[in-house]
Write a protein that binds this DNA or RNA. Structure first.
Lengths: 235, 235
DNA sequence: AATTTTGGCTTGTACGTACAAGTGGATCTT
DNA sequence: AAGATCCACTTGTACGTACAAGCCAAAATT
């Protein structure tokens, strides 16, 4: 991943927000202050702020400033990253199947490319809990191409995507999703502690990354009774 | 809505794409060509293209150009606009309840503000069909504040959002959503032609607009068996 | 005292310039 | 003929400038 000035500012501010240095409702330094503080032009500052806006971290008020926004308290922003970045603090993740070489699933909505299918597939399965409530069963596949030592390694802060970003400089650049309401099958229901046949939200995702041959295919099964899936979008 | 140069170019290109003048896979004129054609600077052109990128109309290739992208053929891009703009051609909309003054719903996920609750509520209900298959039941509420004559009037191309944009210069600036898998109740199941108790996808949306006191509250009930809800996101 | 005006801050739009970096065909060299 | 180089094109990043427009409090006017 190429380092750029705007990305520097962007991640720096994002970290400050994530760590609570900048709290919800706080105004960011004005664009001109950021310019002088970091010795960059307003064009670059605005590019960084635009990205934060797009990802829902801030809100901009014409004539006033940019302020830190309340991130969705439900399981928000699935269109940006994975689960553990989206939710607040009290999220526990349990590995049902540790990362290992396994067959490509034949039931994913998004079909891997021929090149990916030729390669081996790495897979892992997690159960996501809010407190003690299991709310999401998650399966992930990706081609075993460029990620040396990813199996056997602990994930950074429990997040696969943070690991990709920090250890391999791989960033998610986009995603496609398909959403379906389905009956829970027995296995899924068991892990989610619900009756088989209960409606669950099935989300199929293909994450695109800046490595053109690396995509992550995820199948998520969510119990939305207590914790609906959230999403937001701002121009 | 304020008219800006970049919005001009943006809508002009968008219309060309929507009307098929620019087809999927076609390259747009280069940024420099657009500059000279419209007598604007590259900064402005890029702002317009960024918006098209964000809304999923185009794809950019470094060193090559911008090309028109395949829009998702499933019921895509709910985070941007409403239904009839998101899907292709063969969508039929049936009014179950024409726009009229009705009570605010007490069951919406997103609570209208005090100011909105004080005002009267306008409501309408639609059934969305792909061909002959009913796929989505849609209820919409919004405060009766600034939209003179909107009841009794035909929607532009059947779309409420297009009507807002073209007749009232109101644009959607963002949205919040909550997604749940639920059992279909009898009424919903009847209209969607499914058995009561079948899982359906319930989407609650609050659309924000450039009129700060105008939000649109929608409750959508989708039969995702045949047509899953699609979504995509690109940096 | 109440109202209007002003001025200084903020973000929004738009101008123009320069160079980096990816792409691909034409040209030159071996 | 095959390969390497070059060049003209594309988009990406970053610089700098100017003014419009929204917000708000202090100052001037009524």
């Amino acid at each position: 991943m190429k380092r750029t000035r705007y990305k520097e500012i962007e991640t720096l501010l994002k970290v400050k927000i994530q760590h609570g240095v900048l709290k919800v409702g706080d105004y960011l330094p004005s664009e001109n202050e950021l310019c002088t503080n970091f010795s960059i032009t307003r064009t670059t500052v605005r590019k960084a702020l635009d990205n934060l806006l797009k990802e829902g971290y801030i809100e901009k008020k014409h004539g006033k400033g940019s302020l830190v926004k309340e991130r969705r308290h439900s399981l928000g922003l699935l269109n940006v990253k994975g689960f553990s970045e989206a939710v607040g603090m009290n999220v526990n993740t349990i590995f049902l199947q540790e990362p290992a070489k396994r067959e490509w699933s034949t039931t994913t909505s998004f079909r891997p490319s021929e090149n990916e299918l030729k390669a081996n597939s790495l897979h892992f399965e997690q159960l996501r809990c809010v407190g003690d409530d299991p709310v999401m069963l998650e399966n992930n596949w990706f081609a075993d191409l460029e990620l040396k030592n990813i199996i056997g390694q602990e994930f950074v802060e429990g997040s696969f995507f943070k690991t990709l970003s920090q250890k391999y400089l791989i960033e998610v650049t986009g995603s496609e999703q398909e959403l379906r309401a389905e009956y829970a099958d027995e296995r899924t229901a068991g892990y989610l502690k619900i009756e088989p046949g209960t409606p669950i939200l099935h989300i199929s995702v293909k994450f695109h990354t800046n490595k053109s041959n690396l995509n992550i295919y995820s199948e998520l099964y969510c119990n939305t009774m207590k914790y609906p899936i959230g999403n937001s979008y701002h121009l």
